[in-house]
Amino acid sequence: MVAGGGGLIRFEGINKTFNSGGRSLEAVGEINLTVQEGEVITLVGPSGCGKSTLLNMAAGLMKPTAGVVCYRGNPVTGLNRHVGYMTQSDHLLPWRSIAKNIAVPLEIKGLSRVKTSARVAELIDLVGLTGFESAFPTQVSGGMRKRAALARLLASDPETLLMDEPFAALDAQLRIAMQTELLRVREKFGKTILFVTHDPDEAISIADRCVIFSGRPGRIVRVLDTGLPRRRDLAKLRFEPEFLTLARGLWEQLTPDMHAEACS
């Protein structure tokens, strides 16, 4: 069964309703969204509006209550192994050092020891964890764990990256460095990225398109086309007028009440 239409990932009439403890709760609904290959899409919206739920369905961890998620035209039924998923909590393996955690996907692929350790060293350097290779996850900070999880995701080298607030725990400079790296990876390898964030600036600056959700039950209220070039200098971007206009638009969308009050 191959549905019509293009796009890499298609959410078609998606609804997800949870039934727990006799109560049914609609997390997210009426979702129609097509993600093009090589695109960076950011998802923003109030807490609990179903952003993580959408990523879970794209990864095939959950079935939609209604509608269908298609990946390359095929409905996602089981686990979707084309995607890598950096979840909201890092889920590192506590019995493995940081370096060994990053090595997991390489070991699964059956890479030689030499190649594995070379690649791990590269990634450790990339995410700035040099000196913490042999530390256990419980011994490093929250932001460092996030970076280790990012390095592990990059090591697994999936076609599509699902990222749930990956940079929330990082300081401003590190965050820009990681965002830049992410865009570089997209540029170089043509990755597709679905990226959840609560930071409106981030939602604009790294996105080709930014999807804005309403509060629960989550609905898409707007899809903002940033029109920003694929190659961009994130450090400078935030002072440029086109970015400021977009960011202002998003802020107003996310906090309509505040602006209404300010105007009256």
Binding site: L61, G84, Y85, H91, L93, V104, P105, I108, K109
Partner: peptide, 25 residues
């Protein structure tokens, strides 16, 4: 289950899961 799922997404076999997660944990 989350750890198992993440490794499964990375293409882990049942043996991988056993040696990398089930046994150590």
């Amino acid at each position: 289950r989350e750890q198992l799922t993440i490794l499964r997404l990375m293409g882990a076999s049942e043996l991988n899961l056993l040696t990398k997660i089930v046994f150590p944990s």
